[in-house]
Design a binder for these strands. Structure first.
Lengths: 185, 185
DNA sequence: TTGCGACTATACCGATCGGTATACTTTGTT
DNA sequence: AACAAAGTATACCGATCGGTATAGTCGCAA
């Protein structure tokens, strides 16, 4: 445990932002959830916008570290790792707290391309695609970038589909489609 | 032209909701954009929530009618129609006003499953999948529901991907993936 | 000409928003 | 014992939110 006050605030903000939406979450609610006050919140984060960006940047780091760890624990070969991607997101989507992808949701809440929140969200998927492209390249795919983009479309589609309606089998179908696409490439 | 005042309000609300987000759009801004007042707005729509639902329901009707019209104008056979889906969304995503899918965005802004806005958004994609499944069935697919879900994942993924970063070639790659999946089914 | 319904204009309501000012308590260090 | 830093408590700011009350304007029909 023993979290810094700053970390406690960021953690409370993350849970509320993710579960309720960013614009739907006020700074008073964050301070109360972190068992502190607005004064302390604004000591560590100069504005709500900065707190939102801090939330997304931490989410980016945490999620990517957790994700590759999960993949590496399940598969050894690049091809098996590509397929394991869909098992990992399938399990993630099954937890009750699942509310879609924080970056997709943030980009939807801040639709302008120039908005920093939107940009940070876009960068996350750039990195995600690069990771998939790396695996695709190791598989000997002729066009790893194309395959990576296609697979990431399946991932994003599955996340959004599951967010809209739970337990619709999106992850399984995404994996079946991925098998076909990987085999064809 | 000659729109009803009610239609003018709904149209102004639709443009603002889609371009800026629902929670980011106040009723004052809608009334001003429609060249009217809040009083008239509340005469036709008892609350902002009802206005939001009216916006989504009209979007659902309009988009689906426009979509099948576009498909039918481009292809005759069921298989060609399935592929035309990706041409249509590709052209849609290319217009400068494109800001993703209004239903995906709405579901992200109202993340709780029980929320009426969330439910209306989920129904749209249910209908969309049914439409695709119908085409897949006419193609003689063994499992039209599976193919339909897979193709709709590509569509949703492409929309989200293009919303995150414009001109990333999502629609083209989605179509290439769809060709492989349709041929395999 | 009178009256009625649609619409406008404007001021207002309580609540909440993001953000700040001020004063107080706690804690560890020297 | 004294002081500074960290954090709390609380009240406040102007702005905006969704929604309403009231009075007035306009065109049209009897």
């Amino acid at each position: 445990m023993s979290l810094t006050l700053q970390e406690k605030i960021l953690q409370a903000a993350a849970e509320l932002f993710y579960s309720q939406g960013i614009k739907a979450t006020g700074v008073d609610a964050i301070a109360k959830a972190a068992n502190t006050t607005k004064m302390s919140l604004y000591k560590y984060f100069p504005s709500k916008d900065e707190l939102v960006l801090a939330f997304l940047r931490k989410r980016d780091q945490d999620f990517r570290a957790w994700f590759v760890e999960q993949i590496d624990a399940r598969a050894d070969t690049p091809k098996a790792k590509l397929l394991a991607v869909f098992d990992v997101i399938g399990e993630w989507m099954a937890i009750p707290e699942f509310r879609g992808c924080a970056f997709i949701n943030a980009a939807a809440e801040f639709p302008l391309e120039g908005n920093p929140v939107h940009q940070v969200s876009a960068e996350f998927y750039d990195h995600f695609r690069s990771y998939i492209a790396g695996l695709a390249g190791q598989c000997g795919s002729k066009s790893p970038d194309s395959l990576a983009l296609q697979l990431s479309l399946l991932v994003e589609g599955a996340i959004v589909s599951e967010q809209m309606k739970r337990h619709s089998g999106a992850a399984e179908q995404a994996k079946q489609a991925a098998i076909v696409l990987i085999e064809a490439a």
